Simulated assay, not measured.
Amino acid sequence: MNIRLSNSRTLRPLRNFAAACALAILLSGCQSTGTEELVSSSAPPEISGPAASAIAGDMVSRFAEQIGPGKATVALKSDASPFGQALEAALKGWGYAVIIDQKTDGGATVIPLAYVILTVDGQVLARLSTNSVELGRAYSVTVSGATPASALSLMRRG
Rank of each mutant, 00 (worst) to 15 (best):
residue 59 M to R: 03
residue 85 Q to C: 04
residue 7 N to H: 09
residue 123 Q to C: 02
residue 67 I to P: 03
residue 8 S to G: 05
residue 32 S to L: 08
residue 2 N to E: 13
residue 111 I to D: 03
residue 50 P to F: 06
residue 57 G to N: 14
residue 155 M to K: 15
residue 60 V to K: 00
residue 2 N to K: 10
residue 157 R to V: 12
residue 12 R to Q: 13
residue 50 P to I: 05
residue 117 I to D: 04
residue 148 P to T: 15
residue 77 K to L: 11
residue 86 A to E: 07
residue 4 R to T: 15
residue 30 C to I: 01
residue 109 T to P: 03
residue 57 G to A: 12
residue 120 V to S: 05
residue 12 R to T: 12
residue 55 I to R: 00
residue 8 S to V: 12
residue 156 R to C: 07
residue 130 T to E: 05
residue 137 R to E: 04
residue 118 L to S: 04
residue 62 R to T: 00
residue 39 V to G: 06
residue 99 I to G: 06
residue 18 A to D: 13
residue 33 T to F: 07
residue 36 E to K: 08
residue 39 V to P: 05
residue 117 I to K: 04
residue 109 T to I: 10
residue 39 V to M: 09
residue 127 R to L: 09
residue 134 E to R: 12
residue 145 G to D: 13
residue 11 L to S: 13
residue 9 R to H: 11
residue 55 I to N: 02
residue 35 T to K: 10
residue 66 Q to M: 09
residue 134 E to I: 02
residue 92 K to W: 03
residue 38 L to P: 01
residue 116 V to P: 00
residue 119 T to A: 07
residue 101 D to S: 14
residue 145 G to R: 14
residue 47 I to E: 02
residue 21 C to R: 09
residue 44 P to K: 03
residue 89 A to M: 11
residue 1 M to V: 14
residue 128 L to I: 08
residue 112 P to S: 04
residue 61 S to L: 10
residue 55 I to P: 00
residue 40 S to E: 11
residue 16 N to E: 15
residue 122 G to S: 07
residue 17 F to I: 01
residue 138 A to Q: 09
residue 121 D to M: 10
residue 5 L to P: 02
residue 3 I to K: 10
residue 107 G to H: 15
residue 64 A to H: 02
residue 116 V to G: 11
residue 98 V to G: 01
residue 27 L to R: 06
residue 43 A to G: 05
residue 143 V to A: 14
residue 121 D to R: 04
residue 90 A to W: 08
residue 105 D to N: 14
residue 27 L to D: 06
residue 80 A to F: 08
residue 156 R to Q: 14
residue 14 L to E: 10
residue 52 A to W: 02
residue 85 Q to G: 12
residue 140 S to G: 12
residue 149 A to D: 13
residue 43 A to H: 07
residue 46 E to F: 10
residue 117 I to F: 05
residue 68 G to L: 01
residue 122 G to H: 05
residue 21 C to T: 06
residue 107 G to K: 15
residue 13 P to E: 12
residue 37 E to T: 09
residue 130 T to L: 06
residue 42 S to F: 06
residue 151 A to L: 15
residue 121 D to T: 06
residue 17 F to P: 00
residue 149 A to Q: 10
residue 109 T to A: 12
residue 128 L to G: 06
residue 1 M to Q: 10
residue 144 S to A: 14
residue 117 I to A: 05
residue 101 D to P: 09
residue 150 S to H: 08
residue 114 A to R: 10
residue 102 Q to S: 13
residue 77 K to R: 13
residue 109 T to H: 07
residue 137 R to C: 03
residue 132 S to L: 10
residue 104 T to H: 05
residue 124 V to F: 00
residue 42 S to R: 07
residue 66 Q to S: 12
residue 22 A to P: 00
residue 150 S to F: 08
residue 27 L to A: 06
residue 141 V to L: 04
residue 49 G to M: 07
residue 66 Q to K: 13
residue 19 A to K: 00
residue 155 M to G: 03
residue 52 A to I: 03
residue 121 D to W: 05
residue 110 V to E: 04
residue 20 A to E: 02
residue 76 L to S: 11
residue 88 E to Q: 14
residue 150 S to Q: 08
residue 118 L to F: 03
residue 26 L to F: 09
residue 20 A to H: 01
residue 13 P to C: 12
residue 146 A to V: 13
